[in-house]
Design a protein around this nucleic acid. Structure first.
Lengths: 211, 211
DNA sequence: TCCGGTAACATTGTCGACATTCTACTGATC
DNA sequence: GATCAGTAGAATGTCGACAATGTTACCGGA
């Protein structure tokens, strides 16, 4: 029997606000009114502020003293830095998968996501499955710390994707890059996975900072 | 002119508590009494709890609902996971330094730390300079996100070092490993740095999980 | 027209108090 | 003697109110 752990109110609030940021309901640069948010969640400002502190510590919210909290705006510099960090995490995750028991099974799980992506009909769906792919990649590594760090980075990625969604087209290349990565796990080619990941990240940065 | 940003009270509190954890003033597994801590810092429980939420989000504190907050205990599993994450961050940092303007200057700054380490006379001083070395390594990469992620990991490392300090001896090998890494930057040998870092991490895990 | 000052407003930062929950001790029963 | 119900105490979780700060609109003077 493992001890059951109940989530604290601040952590629930943090996740809800994180989703709102990721979905674009709280657009980049917008201010978060404490009183209003507290009303919406049906709690007082105390627990709400505690929840927002978490996101501030992650860098998702910017705090300006006596002024308030603002959703981070992903400038070109920040996008580049985010991908440096994402590359660090995902390369390490990939390595852990290859070192683990069953890299083939992991690769197959990733392929499932790729197949869904291939069948997706809207740019938005492709974007969401893109996130799902990378989330699962890191989850499969089984490292709590890599997962925690990655959560922040994926949220920032979603902000970027959401911002540039209208300019995207339904490109096969986006699906194929992911397919190659998944297959490299099944093939057990560790060095190949690494190269593909690096190339994938480089592509993404170029797409996102070009605009 | 860059906008001057004042630290918020919760963030100051978080840093103070983090230092207390790193120094061992708050030992692993111990409970943090909110009322007592608030008295010590001269604030009410509100801002204090907000500060502690940050550390909880980082995983440095474990929250058990209606019971309180406890300093994380570094089990063998957690030590291994921590080093997976540290390796991810520091390898990426090293790569960024090599890709940057002046890897040689960076290497020399790291060598300064190594020289201090060579002259240190107590195990405690060596341990602190060990932390300084890795902190500077990531700082020199100039990536805010890598630095933020690393901060948590270094604090956990300090918990481990502090716990095993009595069993350590003044070994030259610990200094020499760092020296080699620093020199590899000056020599501009990117692949060598990477190999040395991986080996260094592997050594550390073995030392820490052996006990 | 533009600049400086002022006052009202809105928002954040902080605090003290109450409600709820858990822990530990006591005492009764089998 | 062991187990369990009951209770007192202490700690956390939550809230509403006050204080401090920043913003904005308005007004007067150069």
């Amino acid at each position: 029997m493992e001890p059951l752990l109940q989530e604290s109110t601040p952590s629930i609030i943090a996740e809800r606000v994180r989703q709102a940021i990721a979905k674009g309901d709280l657009p980049p640069g917008s201010q978060l009114g404490e009183a209003e948010l507290a009303r919406e969640f049906g709690v007082s400002r105390g627990p709400l502020r505690e929840g927002l502190q978490r996101l501030t510590a992650e860098g998702l919210l910017i705090s300006i003293r006596n002024r308030g909290l603002f959703v981070i705006e992903m400038t070109a510099d920040r996008v580049r830095d985010m991908y440096v960090a994402r590359q660090a995490v995902e390369r390490a995750a990939a390595e852990q998968i290859h070192l683990g028991d069953d890299a083939t099974a992991a690769g197959r799980q990733l392929l499932d996501v790729v197949e869904e992506m291939a069948e997706a009909k809207t740019v938005r769906d492709v974007g969401e499955l893109d996130i799902t792919f990378h989330d699962r990649l890191v989850t499969l590594a089984g490292s709590p710390r890599l997962s925690r760090m990655h959560l922040t980075l994926l949220t920032e990625t979603q902000i970027c994707i959401r911002a540039l969604e209208p300019t995207y087209a339904l490109e096969d290349v986006r699906v194929e890059e992911h397919r190659e990565i998944a297959q490299s796990f099944i093939a057990g080619k560790r060095a190949l996975t690494d190269r593909l990941l690096v190339a994938h990240m480089k592509d993404a940065v170029r797409r996102l900072t070009r605009g």
